[in-house]
Design a protein around this nucleic acid. Structure first.
Length: 423
RNA sequence: GGAGAAAUGGCAGAGUGGUCGAAUGCGGCAGUCUUGAAAACUGUUGAGGGUCACACCUCCGGGGGUUCGAAUCCCUCUUUCUCCGCCA
């Protein structure tokens, strides 16, 4: 959620930057400013009435003490009138504040200067590319065929137990999955992130805190009886650690990592692009999160990008980094880099990580602040990224590492799997 | 799931109708002393709104009510703790 004072002082900039997302924000911004003006005006009148009423109450108390009941009763009448007036104003203040909040919820984050304007993923900017695309043998298969051939992932069994998009990993498939999780967590903790195990269900307040609610309610699985939501990413429980928190400046930066399964309804998805592991309702992901001083958050973002790079380099997967254009940028993000692994057998790029700086957008809603050097509370910056999401990394490994004899396990993982080939 | 107790500032913990945004202690910050540090002493120290700045307003778990006036009384929800039951 954007801050009203920021919008007030940077109106042109906000409109101009939001245009990168192909949004004409002029009307919304004007509405915000006029609602805010209304709010302040009503608040002032209400405050005045309450002040008068407070003074009156004190006088009444004093009059009763000194035995002047008659005078006191006279003032009581007056106080009653003030109460009526304050009730009306309080209601109108509440309405105005709510309307303002509703509107603010609908305005996405202001993209960073370097975000390219654009409509869709076609307009994302490739900023880096590395790794050799392997030349596969003639009978190379897409990962869902390999999964079947070596009996390591059973999509039909998952279908039977739960439904489409809930695969069952078996044998070496399950072990490779666990190896990847451990490998990612180890890399992240080596880089200074401290490991957390987080709840997989969150309450409504947490959903609001990170912005999944109210906008993306339909994307999360909801447990109605207890009013809890299955997490779509560790970002939700992880970031909500810091809801309503005031940190000391010295606590920054904070980096945490955690492995969780992720649950996404993905309403409306279908077709060849969602085949196999490409898009699932339940998948595993290791996430990294940072809380940063505003002056350092973009350095931190670069650091996260480099960190994810080294992991993909070690796995020897061909990958590229995209700077997302305005049209593809997430609602809460100011700048996002996507990592894509080239999946040879499918002949397409698969997104395996998304690393973002949210600046104060999340912190404002979360009320995540730190005491700055002036002793003032200031909103912190939050960042997060996948490091990494499992299924498409797995797909990339299966497809790129396949040989006539089987799927070779990348060197760095062999210590974790305990085997060097799936055949 | 049953019975009881509780929820106050960064933490601990007073406060049961007006003088309470709230004693006291710890912690934090600034200063005195010291070569420096510690100790001791002095001062200062919640959040949000509002204002050029003050004034002023709101907040004592959430919501509602009683009252001229609520941290304090009533209702309700939530959470925590203790005991019992169940259980990986």
């Amino acid at each position: 959620m954007l801050q009203v004072p920021f919008i007030r002082e940077n109106k042109e900039l906000v409109v101009e930057r939001l245009a990168k997302r192909n949004i004409d924000a002029n009307q919304m911004v004007n509405d915000v400013l006029s609602l805010d003006e209304d709010r302040r005006r009503i608040q002032t009148s209400l405050d005045n009435i309450l002040a008068e009423s407070n003074t009156l109450s004190k006088e009444i108390g004093n009059l009763f003490k000194s035995g002047e009941a008659e005078k006191a009763n006279l003032l009581k009448t007056k106080s009653g009138e003030l109460k009526e007036a304050s009730k009306e104003l309080a209601e109108s203040l509440n309405d105005t504040s709510e309307a303002l909040k509703e509107l603010l919820y609908k305005i996405p984050n202001v993209p960073n200067e370097v975000v390219p304007k654009g409509d869709s993923d076609e307009d994302n900017e490739e900023i880096f590319k590395e790794g050799d695309i392997p030349v596969l043998h003639d009978e190379a298969l897409p990962h869902w065929e390999l999964a079947k051939k070596y009996d390591i992932i059973d999509f039909e069994l998952g279908n039977k137990i739960t439904g489409a998009g809930f695969p069952v990993y078996k044998g070496k498939g399950a072990k490779l999955q666990r190896a990847l999780i451990n490998y990612f967590l180890d890399k992240n903790t080596e880089a200074g992130y401290s490991e957390f195990q987080l709840p997989h269900l969150v309450n409504e307040a947490s959903g609001f805190g990170t912005g999944q609610l109210p906008d993306k309610e339909g994307q999360m699985y909801h447990v109605g009886e207890d009013n809890l939501y299955l997490i779509p990413t560790a970002e939700v429980p992880g970031t909500n650690i810091f809801r309503d928190v005031v940190l000391n400046e010295g606590d920054l930066p904070i980096g945490i990592t955690g492995y969780t399964p992720c649950f996404r309804r993905e309403a409306g998805s279908y077709g060849a692009h969602v085949r196999g592991l490409n898009r699932l309702h339940q998948f595993d992901k290791v996430e990294i999160l940072r809380v940063e001083h505003p002056s350092k958050s973009y350095n931190a973002l670069d650091g996260m990008v480099n960190h994810v790079k080294t992991i993909l380099q070690e796995l020897k997967l061909p990958y590229r980094i995209l700077r997302l254009c305005g049209g593809d940028l997430g609602f809460t993000s100011a700048l996002t880099y996507d990592f894509e692994v080239f999946s040879t057998a499918q002949d397409r790029w698969l997104e395996v990580s998304s690393v973002s700086n949210f600046e104060t957008f999340q912190a404002n809603r979360l009320k995540l602040r730190f005491k700055n050097s002036n002793g003032k509370n200031e909103l912190a910056h939050t960042l997060n990224g996948s490091s990494l999401a499992l299924p498409r990394v797995l797909a990339g490994i299966l497809e790129n590492y396949q040989t006539k004899d089987g799927v070779v396990i990348p060197d760095v993982l062999q210590g974790y799997t305990g085997f060097s080939i799936i055949n």
